[in-house]
């Protein structure tokens, strides 16, 4: 339970960090908060030759509200997200989802960018990013680029980030006025990885019908996904428990490549996702009604 030997650098600039990461001769890995990487290294599941610590790189630790769009520096800790009045005001869904992440002792170190780049399928941040339609800024040897969330999460622990690229910023667009939302998950103990989770955003039109519904189940397969069949089944309809339960049952049955492990079987995960989905839709409708 100790990491294999590796070398360590703590560059002062992003350019220097990218230089280390883009060197093909060395298997280098970014070190952000280390709350997922270091356990993986302790268990020797990850054996990088070089760790590039971003702790001293300027301007990666910030929370900004730019006309409703929330901009989070990649090295911002989840504790800072938790305590930020800017986040609570601009993006209450993120604030709620953030509270599902582990415990203060972990959130003190765990970073926003780390969770996105690590792309654990059971993690909250990738699901929130997909639900809100996030964009990510990355910088690499060929300069800066913006990656939309739909192109970002590839499969288990795999993203569109290329060799030498560093995730620098997460941009979460503001929810439209009147949007109702919910973020639900079930873990064996609070703070553990989710066995299943579902995030929802939706609006109600003047007749009270659901519209612009987004449903994102997570911890169920390789990446969080949009449950588009559920979204289509609900849009234009009057919200009801029957509608939600029926649609979420179909969602659960249709999950492709579901995760099955020691924490929960496929059947149990399907069951949880359908119950959580219906619960999340109900709560989102309640919030949308309260907002109108």
């Amino acid at each position: 339970m100790k990491p294999a030997p590796f070398d360590y650098v703590i560059p002062a600039t992003l350019e220097e960090a990218i230089g280390y990461l883009a060197n093909d001769d060395v298997e280098a890995h970014v070190l952000a908060g280390g709350q997922s990487l270091v356990p993986a290294m302790n268990m020797r599941m990850s054996r990088p030759e070089l760790l590039v610590d971003l702790a001293k790189v300027d301007d990666l630790d910030f929370i900004r509200d730019e006309s409703g769009s929330l901009q989070l520096g990649a090295m911002t800790t989840k504790r800072d997200v938790e305590m930020s009045p800017v986040v609570a005001h601009a993006q209450p869904l993120l604030h709620a989802a953030n509270m599902w992440v582990a415990h203060p002792q972990i959130r003190n170190r765990s970073t926003v960018g780390g969770s996105i780049a690590h792309a654990d399928p059971a993690a909250e941040y990738p699901a929130v990013a997909l639900l809100l339609g996030a964009e990510f800024e990355a910088q690499g040897p060929n300069g800066k680029r913006t990656i939309p969330v739909d192109d970002f999460f590839v499969t288990y622990f795999t993203t569109a980030l290329e060799e030498g690229e560093v995730l620098t910023k997460v941009m979460l667009p503001a929810m439209a006025a009147g949007t109702g939302w919910s973020f639900q998950e079930i873990a064996r103990r609070h703070g553990d990885f989710a066995m299943a989770g579902v995030g929802v955003t939706l609006q109600l039109d003047s007749a009270g019908h659901c519209q612009n519904t987004r449903v994102v189940p997570f911890a169920l397969g390789p990446t969080p996904v949009r449950a588009t069949a559920v979204e289509e089944a609900i849009n234009g309809e009057t919200p009801s428990a029957d509608l939600f339960e029926h649609a979420c049952q179909k969602m659960a049955d249709g999950i492709e490549d579901p995760t099955s492990d020691v924490h929960a079987s496929v059947e149990y995960r399907r069951h949880l996702s359908s119950v959580l989905g219906a619960r999340a839709l109900e709560e989102a409708v309640d919030r949308a009604r309260a907002a109108n």
Partner: peptide
């Protein structure tokens, strides 16, 4: 001043 896991922190950090 922040409570952190010393098993998930490297001494160099």
């Amino acid at each position: 001043g922040k409570a952190v896991r010393s098993c998930l922190t490297l001494a160099v950090q």
